[in-house]
Simulated assay, not measured.
Amino acid sequence: MRSECCTHPTPNLRFDPPDSTFYDDSELRYSIDKKVTGWDDKRKEWLKRHPTFTAGSKDMIVMVTGSQPNPCQNPIGDHLLLRAFKNKVDYCRIHGYDVFYNNWSMDFIDAWANMGTISPDYKKWGEIQRSVFKDKLFPESNDQTALIYLIYKDRRLTDKIYLEGEYYFKGYWVEIVPTYYNITKKYVGIEREDNLLRRRHAEKVSEQYAAFREPHLKEAGNGRWCWRRPFITHFTGCQPCSGNHNQIYAEESCWNGMLKALNFADNQVLRKYGFVHPDLLDSKTVTDSLFDYPDEGPW
């Protein structure tokens, strides 16, 4: 029996009452130089007139992502960015999250942009940041330090931000990419022992099977050098779009590492449909896996 308390009405995409809202303001602009003020209040008023969009909204998760508007200088850059975006879309689809590509928080972006290179106060913000963060190496304001400064100083914004500290997010690619084969081998071993995990299932119930797998991962660890599947692999220094990678990394190792990471993630999606990339460096080739996978194939 389905409990009605756990269901929410579907948003009505064809209902827009004639009441005037901030969208009717002819002066409304979504630009940094002419910012939208009071965004949260405006949205609250709009939602009062569109109640089907509010049900369950406090429990919703949205993933925000984006990339630069211009084509990449690196010939492989646009392909890698597209694959990276597909990876996020796959994750959101499987877990039932929305994904939003572009401007995401009016108030936050406005405050953040004020510390950027287009701001007349750019030089001043560099000095302020160095006065707060004594170990900052360079005098200029930069995106990362500006972000940390906002989280540290502005309680209006930080009340809406959750800083994850219970999961290993760093995911340094040089350490993680070489472990993919061993991680896959460990997971295959688990699935050989538990036929429930080998059962074919719909994407929509993937989280249930993750819960079934969890007792087998008690010894996997949950941080650096663990053999749990990494949630994030961070390709710091690779700069796939510009191609101006940090010279301590070989160009080939950056791009090959990204291909391995993307195909490693892709395999977790393809498995549900009976396919797999047998070679993580070969994105074009997928092979069938037997119904009661894992079999003795090249996994």
Rank of each mutant, 00 (worst) to 15 (best):
I76E: 14
D154M: 08
R200M: 10
S57W: 11
I94P: 01
R2V: 10
R49T: 06
P51F: 00
L281N: 09
A220M: 04
V99W: 04
H277L: 01
G38T: 03
I76W: 06
D25I: 02
R224M: 02
E296Q: 13
I248T: 10
D90N: 13
I151C: 06
Q73E: 14
V99I: 15
S289I: 15
C92Y: 04
V269N: 01
W299Y: 12
C226T: 13
F22P: 01
P240Y: 02
G77K: 04
G297N: 09
E214W: 02
H95C: 10
Q239N: 12
D19V: 05
N74R: 04
W112L: 15
A211Q: 12
F53N: 03
V276W: 13
E207K: 06
D279V: 13
K136F: 05
M258I: 11
L280I: 00
W227N: 12
V174Y: 12
W299K: 00
V286I: 15
K42F: 06
V269C: 03
P178V: 05
C241K: 00
W46H: 11
R156M: 08
Y187I: 12
Y97K: 05
T233V: 14
E166V: 07
N87S: 15
S131W: 04
I148D: 15
L147H: 09
D25W: 02
K204G: 06
F275K: 12
M63I: 13
G56H: 07
D135N: 13
Y249L: 00
E191S: 10
A202D: 14
N182E: 11
E175F: 08
L197H: 02
N256E: 11
K185Y: 07
D33Y: 11
Y181F: 11
T10M: 12
T21Q: 00
F138D: 14
G38W: 04
D292M: 13
L197K: 03
I176M: 10
D98W: 14
S283C: 09
S26Y: 05
Q144E: 13
L80G: 00
K44C: 07
D121G: 04
G274R: 05
L157A: 04
M63C: 12
L157H: 07
Y209L: 05
L147I: 08
C241H: 01
S119L: 01
Y122H: 14
G274L: 05
V188H: 03
G243S: 01
D121N: 15
L28C: 02
S31T: 15
E219W: 09
